[in-house]
């Protein structure tokens, strides 16, 4: 397969951020991949939450990830969820070097390049509207 996996170009579905999650998306707009770290126990919480998922304390601090990690699992999607998405695209879970996992899409790669533990790094791309999404590319 010679198809290259690319970022979406049109507007994709995106729920309105809440007070808790807005700093993450503000970070994306600046090109920073943020996560919450607990001021008390140092555990990382992602996706964001009011409480640390480790010790349940409030008062978590936003921190910038180095944006590097490895591919944990992926799926090359050929039947898009809605017509807003252009297939094929590779939905994926990456494990960041800081130790947490997030959903993303892998781009700038061929489907056959993908394998578990592939080193990846974040690459912010503007999709439709003002949204900047944290895609990942092979590192």
């Amino acid at each position: 397969m010679t198809t290259r996996l690319r970022a979406q170009t049109r507007e994709v579905p995106h729920a309105v951020p809440s007070e808790v999650t807005a700093p993450f998306w503000d970070g994306c707009a600046r090109g920073e991949l943020l996560f919450q770290r607990c001021a008390r126990c140092r555990a990382i919480t992602f996706p964001p939450s009011e409480h640390c998922r480790g010790c349940l304390a409030r008062g978590q601090v936003w921190e910038a990830s180095a944006g590097r990690g490895t591919l944990y699992s992926w799926t090359v999607v050929h039947r898009p969820v809605t017509p807003a998405f252009d297939p094929p695209y590779a939905a994926a879970i990456v494990t960041l070097d800081e130790g947490y996992q997030m959903l993303t899409n892998i781009i700038d790669a061929a489907p056959d390049d993908l394998r578990a533990d592939l080193p990846v790094r974040v690459s912010f791309r503007r999709v439709g509207g003002d949204l900047r999404l944290p895609y990942f590319v092979p590192a």
Binding site: V12, H14, A15, T21, V77, F85, V127
Partner: peptide
């Protein structure tokens, strides 16, 4: 919001 933009 952490799922839908990825075409899940």
């Amino acid at each position: 919001e952490f799922v839908a933009p990825w075409g899940m």
